[in-house]
């Protein structure tokens, strides 16, 4: 993992106010997201962050799994 599980949890928690406030901020520009759309957006960002966190840093999953020789 690129970051620890604890740090990943913190990143996801800190993301919550950004998603919630992003919805509020967008409305001032005339873009109104429904609750469902906000949830989907938030879920997508969380998924992207989790994938980034668990993906091996060099992008080579096989090498990561087999470990150094």
């Amino acid at each position: 993992m690129r970051i620890s599980k604890g740090a990943l949890l913190v990143v996801i928690a800190v993301l919550v106010p950004f998603v919630v406030e992003f919805r509020t901020a967008l409305s001032w520009f005339g873009i109104e997201l429904s609750v469902l759309e906000s949830l989907v957006l938030g879920g997508a960002v969380v998924l992207a962050i989790v994938l980034w966190a668990v993906w091996p840093p060099n992008g080579n999953a096989e090498a990561e799994l087999s470990g150094p020789n």
Partner: peptide
């Protein structure tokens, strides 16, 4: 973390 998230929803 849960306190932080809960307060985000409520205060917003």
């Amino acid at each position: 973390l849960l306190w932080f998230v809960g307060m985000t929803f409520m205060s917003n």
